[in-house]
C-alpha cells in the first residue's frame, strides 16, 4: 500500500526580482511517508524555507512556483484553486514558524486564535470550539488552560508561545506538519522540550513531520530521514543513521564537522570555507565546487546527478559515481 503523504517532484520556485530571476528552489524531489519525520537541512538561504512555502503556497510576490508537482496523497496542490488550498492549509498541512514571539497576533487572545483554526475547518459551535482549544492547550502542556485561554500573546514566554503555535497547528489533526526552524529562536533548555512535544504529537496523531533546520543536532534528535539542501538543490539524502555514519557528499561532511564537539579542545572551529554562492550567478558545474576541498576538473564543467549508492542513500557528487571515478577524472 502506498502510504506516501507528500511527494514533491521537480519543484522549481523562482523569485522575479529587478536584478534577475533567482532560482530559490531548483528542481527538488522530496517524499514524506505517513507518520515519518523528515529533516530538510542546509545553510541560510539554501531554499529550505522556500520549499516549505511552496508546499503551503504562501509564497509572496515576486516568488512563484514555475515548475513541478506537489502531491498531497492523490491531489496535486499546484492544481488546486485558492479556495481549495485554504481548506488544505491548517487542516491537512499545517506549519509552525521560527519566530514564536511575532507569529501570534498581539491583539487577540491565544484562545481565540486557536478557536479560529478549529472553526475554519470544522463545523462546530463556539462552545465546542472552545472545548477543543482548551483540550489541545492541556495536551501541549500549557498550565491552567482555562485561564490561559484568555491570555494575550505578550503575556506568555517564547516557549509557551511556540507551544501555542504547535497546538494551533495540531488542532485539526493534519496529516503533515511543517516545522520551519521551530527551536532556533528559543533557549537551548526549551529547545529539547519543544522537540519532545512535536515528537509526542507526531506519535499521538500519526502526523508526518517535515523539520526544516540548519541544526544537525535537531535532525539527529527528531528525524528519520534527511535531505541536505544546498543552493536550491538536494545534495544528499539518506536515513538519519546513514547520514551520520556515512556522510558522502563533501558538503554534508563539512556540515557535520562544523558542529563543535564537547570532547575536544580546539582553538579554531571548523568552517566550510567561502560563502553560499549568489543564486543569481551560480558557478558552472557543481554548485558546491568553489567551496569543495575535493573538487575535480569535471566538477567545474558538469553538474552531477543525484546518484543512488544503495540503501536509499543518494548523493549529488561525482565522487559517488563509479564510472567517473574509474575513468580517471
Amino acid at each position: 500500500m502506498d502510504d506516501t503523504i507528500l511527494k514533491i517532484r521537480g519543484l522549481k520556485t523562482q523569485f522575479f526580482t529587478s536584478k534577475g530571476v533567482v532560482p530559490a528552489v531548483d528542481g527538488v524531489d522530496v517524499t514524506v511517508r505517513a507518520g515519518e519525520a523528515v529533516g530538510l537541512v542546509g545553510e541560510s538561504g539554501c531554499g529550505k524555507s522556500m520549499t516549505a512555502m511552496s508546499v503551503m503556497q504562501l509564497l509572496q510576490h515576486p516568488g512563484r512556483v514555475v515548475e513541478g508537482e506537489i502531491w498531497l496523497k492523490d491531489r496535486n496542490l499546484l492544481k488546486l484553486s485558492k479556495r481549495e488550498m485554504c481548506d488544505v492549509r491548517g487542516n491537512e498541512i499545517s506549519m509552525i514558524f521560527q519566530e514564536p514571539m511575532t507569529s501570534l497576533n498581539p491583539v487577540f487572545t491565544i484562545g481565540r486564535q486557536v478557536m479560529e483554526a478549529v472553526r475554519q475547518h470544522q463545523d462546530v459551535s463556539k462552545e465546542e470550539a472552545k472545548e477543543i482549544a482548551i483540550d489541545i492547550f492541556r495536551r501541549i502542556g500549557i498550565p491552567e488552560p482555562e485561564k490561559r485561554f484568555y491570555s494575550y500573546p505578550h503575556q506568555l514566554s517564547g516557549g509557551l508561545r511556540q507551544r501555542v503555535m504547535i497546538g494551533m497547528a495540531m488542532v485539526c489533526n493534519p496529516s503533515l506538519m511543517i516545522c520551519d526552524e521551530p527551536t532556533t529562536a528559543l533557549d537551548v533548555t526549551i529547545e529539547a522540550q519543544i522537540l519532545y512535544l512535536i515528537k509526542e504529537m507526531q506519535k499521538e496523531k500519526g502526523t508526518a513531520v517535515v523539520m526544516i533546520t540548519h541544526n544537525l543536532g535537531v535532525v539527529a534528535e527528531s528525524c528519520d530521514y534527511v535531505y541536505v539542501m544546498y543552493a536550491g538543490k538536494i545534495m544528499e539524502e539518506a536515513s538519519v543513521y546513514e547520514i551520520f555514519e556515512h556522510p558522502t557528499h563533501p558538503y554534508t561532511f563539512g556540515l557535520l564537522n562544523s558542529i563543535p564537539k564537547t570532547t575536544e579542545v580546539k582553538d579554531h572551529l571548523f568552517t566550510i570555507r567561502g560563502l553560499v554562492p549568489n543564486l543569481l550567478s551560480l558557478p558552472k558545474g557543481c554548485r558546491f565546487c568553489t567551496r569543495c576541498d575535493k573538487a575535480m576538473q569535471i566538477c567545474t564543467e558538469y553538474e552531477p546527478d543525484l546518484y543512488d549508492i544503495g540503501g536509499g542513500h543518494k548523493v549529488r557528487c561525482f565522487l559517488a559515481n563509479k564510472e567517473v571515478m574509474e575513468s580517471g577524472k
Binding site: 488544505v88 491548517g90 514558524f97
Partner: peptide, 12 residues
C-alpha cells in the same frame, strides 16, 4: 509574521 500564521491557518 502573524499574518503569515493566519494564512497558514487556512483563512481566506
Amino acid at each position: 509574521d502573524y499574518i503569515r500564521t493566519a494564512r497558514a491557518k487556512g483563512l481566506v
